[in-house]
């Protein structure tokens, strides 16, 4: 049987390959996961990627994979018709900040057949990361659902907060703040799915 091909870092120069829009080339996705017609609550998710010295990581990329507002994924394993593709990809800027425009996902059934709390699935890539890292973004206004979520239940209570984006109401609509700390006391919980 063949064995898994080893992972390697995206390096510092992935942008023109993976997020090439600033180079005048079409990309496969960007930080805007929805268009005007997709149903659901419009949200912005933004935050910074931060290294172990507290410095912004200006050459990282995050990808988002999410269900639509009804909790449906656009994939044959789900099988239902989803409202959108549900994939986003964006680099961090010179302040280490990323920004995602999307709709809040609905609940997705867990592996134990119970509903999971709404969440975005996230991968983090960067120069200096030989492997990408997996995490999830949960939502602060879903405290009851978060309380009973099976995946959050696998995480020490003291670290769960690193997975929960804080909701703020702004003139432009709800904005969720989610920083990704690669190391340190507040290191974001990373999964090994």
């Amino acid at each position: 049987m063949p064995k898994q091909t080893p992972s390697q870092t995206v390096g510092p120069y992935f942008a023109y390959g993976l997020t090439p829009q600033p180079y005048g080339r079409p990309g496969i996705a960007d930080g805007r996961i929805v268009n005007e017609t997709v149903p659901g609550e419009r949200i912005i998710v933004t935050g910074r990627v931060i290294d172990g010295a507290g410095k912004p990581v200006i050459d990282s990329m995050i990808e988002i994979w999410q269900a639509d507002a009804q909790g449906r994924y656009a994939h044959p394993a789900d099988g239902r018709e989803a409202d959108f593709h549900g994939f986003g990809r964006t680099g961090t800027d010179e302040t280490g900040t990323f920004r995602i425009e999307t709709v809040k996902p609905g609940s997705v059934t867990g592996s134990d057949a119970r509903p999971q709390a709404p969440h975005l699935n996230v991968t983090v890539f960067a120069r200096g990361m030989p492997n990408h890292a997996y995490t999830r973004i949960y939502f602060s206004d879903e405290s009851a659902a978060n309380e009973s979520d099976a995946v959050l239940g696998l995480v020490d209570a003291g670290r769960r907060g690193t997975l929960i984006a804080a909701r703020q109401e702004t003139a432009g609509g709800p904005v969720y703040r989610f920083d990704i700390n690669l190391q340190g006391d507040a290191e974001t919980v990373f999964f090994d799915p």
Binding site: D51, G52, A53, K55, V57, A126, R127, G128, M129, P130, A133, Y134, V151, L154, V155, R159, L182, Q183, E187, T188, V189, F190, F191, D192, P193
Partner: peptide, 11 residues
């Protein structure tokens, strides 16, 4: 400074 140091959590 960029590699996660805490154990990954299998899900």
């Amino acid at each position: 400074l960029r590699g996660p140091k805490k154990p990954l959590i299998p899900i």
